[in-house]
Write a protein that binds this DNA or RNA. Structure first.
Lengths: 204, 204, 204, 204
DNA sequence: TATGAATGAGATTTCATTCAT
DNA sequence: TATGAATGAAATCTCATTCAT
């Protein structure tokens, strides 16, 4: 078979995978993993139920594939690859980016997170593919500033998790609507407040 | 019927409810809500499957009842009712207490949290029964210090969620074993680090 | 044991049986046999669930006992024992009596009739205890008039079933409300119409 | 999709529906509605249990579908659409036809009738689909003859129900074997006897 | 004898997965 | 490769019956 044909075929396969994955994401977001049926996923994706199994081994495999997909999107954070020298700018860009990611893909991530608790393999995959790629560069950024004497000698591991936990929980409230007071808090103010906190503890 | 007999019967009912609830908690923790079967819950609780339904309307009701149970345990935080004047002591006691709660009941809370995403009623119940009773007093504590000029004019809502998000995510890593470096970090050090952060941003 | 005590005890037992039977009749009437639960029957009868089983072998036994109970009530038809010489009066009294019986006990009989189709023993019991005691005297009444030359030589068996079928179906419509036109038809008119029919075919 | 393919598919679906419906009819006839299990219905129909639910929403839906099926068969009574001018012929054909229907489908109708008492929707459906299509034309036939002076001014509603009740109860005895004397009564004689009765009351 | 909590068999229904077309 | 009907295991829940008190 010619390479061109091969490529074309591979692209078709990839396109179909994505098509199914998007359908699954929609349904998982609405129903959660367990209540989502393959029938509804197939309908949402515009394929037959059996077709799903030509591209994925089983229903759980859809979840694992979604982790990969999100990982790909998530890695594109140039903020981390070429971070600003100004810590305020760095943290601010970072938190805004994470807020945006959660806003755009939070509904996709939620059902994955839900399964974390009962699926060790998925837990590991999410940790490796999604959390570590973000946390590691932040830790290193903090460590470098500590080494250069610019930052106080904080624990980068703990502080990085605190940073992520802070933005995640605040964003969750911002988006869930469970606390009406969050309607009065702009994203800017929210991010600024968290950035200030991290600068206060880190900057000398 | 005599009051004594009444009380005795009520106690029996309560004991049996708790027995079933504990069985459910075990299985939910191991399998998650959906993969946990009533058959296994019954076996774990040491009762027949049908007996579950003499005490709970349905499987989901077990989850709701667990929220109530946790709420009761959670509310007993005297730290919040009569908080220390020393902010460092206050935050430190608070975070240790939350760490302990997550350590003791995290495996019970996890499957509840997982269902949050696809069950609005449960979400509201958890917010009202578990999160608000802790968050509100903290917010008020911070607000009072701001009013008295002791704290900087931070946003108590955002800061409180940041505090909770920080301890929750760090505790999750501490307990999950997903990141081996957490074995080197003592709980003391972890809590101190987060407390320092909050003092840095709040204290003048 | 003294006879008096014996009698008293027997009366108590009989009273309790009737109490339970009445509760069962209520619930059977509302839910049908299968959807009626022993729990609800017990509540309706004002006894505990277990008590039912001290007086009846099982749930189906309640239905059989109800047949007996209705048979007792049904037999008290003096119209049949000492029938009027005037056929018009005889048929008229008879049909009014049957209408009244169906009105009073139709809701109790309905669930029994429903089970007739799948329970041969019950079918036989109802035939022997309820239908035959009424049908036989009517057949004999007709046969006697035929023999005396007062009636035409009709088939008493067929005619008797026709008579019963006529009053039963008309009463069913009269009571069920499924056909609103029956609201305009008085019971008198209905009975008269059916009586006329039987006189027309029988009387010379 | 081509029309042919469409038609073929529709036919397959219809065939499978009928196949399941027939299985259900068999089991309902033998056990009654409630004692019939989906497992046995599936076995009788030669499909898997789950397949039933691809064609019917639930078990009760099978009963409703059977009403429809019977209604279709029942309506084909040309006797009613183009009735004979001779009342004797009309009633005779009609009763023979009803006898035949009960003989052929009585076992299917019985469990439906049993549920009538506890299922108002089913009651209404049976009335509308099965009873009214037969009763209405008969009433109109009688009314027309009354208007033309050929019949006496009887009540067509009551008389029609009497007619139906008469044939139904007699047929029930004829087919059930509960009364051995019915073995001596030919269907001809039975029908003739009932026809005579209706002619006696109606014809001038 | 009365109770009612406990039982567990059994019923209905769902749905991931297979496979013939 | 795509389809979707068929499958049947498995899950939740009900409820007649038992039995210790």
């Amino acid at each position: 078979m010619l390479d061109d044909a091969m490529d074309f075929k591979e692209q078709m396969v990839e396109a179909r995978r994505t098509q199914i994955l998007m359908g699954a994401a929609q349904v998982f977001a609405k129903k959660g993993f367990h209540r989502a049926t393959t029938k509804e996923i197939a309908r949402q994706a515009g394929v037959a139920e059996g077709t799903i199994y030509n591209y994925f081994d089983n229903k759980r495999d859809l979840l694992m594939a979604m982790v990969e997909m999100l990982a790909t999107r998530s890695i594109k954070v140039t903020i981390l690859e070429d971070p600003s020298d100004d810590p305020k700018e760095f943290f601010s860009l970072l938190l805004h980016d994470r807020y945006q990611l959660l806003k755009d893909y939070g509904h996709i991530m939620a059902p994955m997170i839900a399964e974390i608790f009962s699926d060790p393999d998925l837990r590991e995959a999410i940790y490796q593919s999604i959390l570590m790629p973000v946390a590691d560069p932040i830790e290193q950024y903090i460590q470098r500033r500590i080494d250069s004497g610019e930052f106080k000698p904080v624990n980068p591991i703990v502080i990085t998790r605190a940073l992520i936990g802070s933005i995640v929980l605040n964003t969750a409230f911002q988006l869930s609507g469970v606390d009406p007071r969050y309607e009065m808090i702009s994203v800017e103010a929210m991010v600024d407040q968290i950035v200030d906190m991290f600068l206060a503890v880190t900057k000398k």
